[in-house]
Nucleic acid binder design. Structure first.
Lengths: 119, 119
DNA sequence: GAAAACACTTTGTATTGCAAAGTGAACGGA
DNA sequence: TCCGTTCACTTTGCAATACAAAGTGTTTTC
């Protein structure tokens, strides 16, 4: 694990709002649209788009139905989603842990060894 | 601490690339431009813009000089930056911890108590 | 029966992450 | 001494997208 492993941070999950949704769903089993919106104090539009993004990534199972004449949407993590989230969280934990260890290296040791990303 | 505390996640710090830079600088004292770029395998342009963003937020002290006829840029966390990063990391740690605890609540408990963000 | 509430979705915009291209100085070979 | 290359960045262009305001359709309330 080198410092550049941050590249592995899944952008779909990492975004603030979606990290919150994934986090929330990871702690429960299934939640309604309104539950997510209220728990996270998110706007409706925000929830809709994030749910769609997460669903399209295969991380969420979203079910839409009508109950007493009103739309009812629920979301739950898929197995893939749970795995991806766990992986993300592990990465974050490692980054955080390393950061917490505090200053240790001398300044300047990182120079040299030029290595551009392939274009 | 409620679930909506994700709102406190500092967007300047939270972005992947910048989280990596902050993380890297938190573990050392000061690094040159090229050190950051190489350690994180980031493109030059990316490093420049992220450094600027972090500097404008007051999180980084960036010094630019010429050494043997070449520009030499270094970056280090400011006290504010170190504090903000620590706070961010603490928040992440809490989110991560709660997520790690696994399913516990019943589905449906989060409904009701509508509370829109002020517009 | 008009108006408000509810559960969403769509739209518009303003931001911004990213890499390709650009800049300018120094160095290396022919 | 010219020409190309390397180095250390900065600027530019664009595609993606986070966000909230406005919109939709139903249902309840007064």
């Amino acid at each position: 694990m080198n410092a550049a492993s941050y590249q592995q941070l899944d952008r779909v999950i990492h975004e603030r709002g979606r990290l919150a949704i994934m986090s929330l769903l990871a702690a429960t089993t299934e939640l309604p649209f309104t539950g997510i919106r209220d728990a996270l104090e998110m706007t409706d539009g925000n929830v809709t788009t994030h749910l769609r993004t997460l669903q399209e990534a295969g991380y969420l199972a979203v079910t839409k139905s009508f109950q007493n004449g009103r739309p009812h949407t629920t979301a739950a993590l898929t197995v893939t989603g749970r795995k991806a989230f766990r992986h993300h969280v592990d990465l974050l934990a490692r980054i955080v842990e390393r950061a917490r260890s505090g200053p240790s290296l001398e300044p300047g040791v990182m120079s040299g060894s030029r290595l551009r990303p392939q274009t």
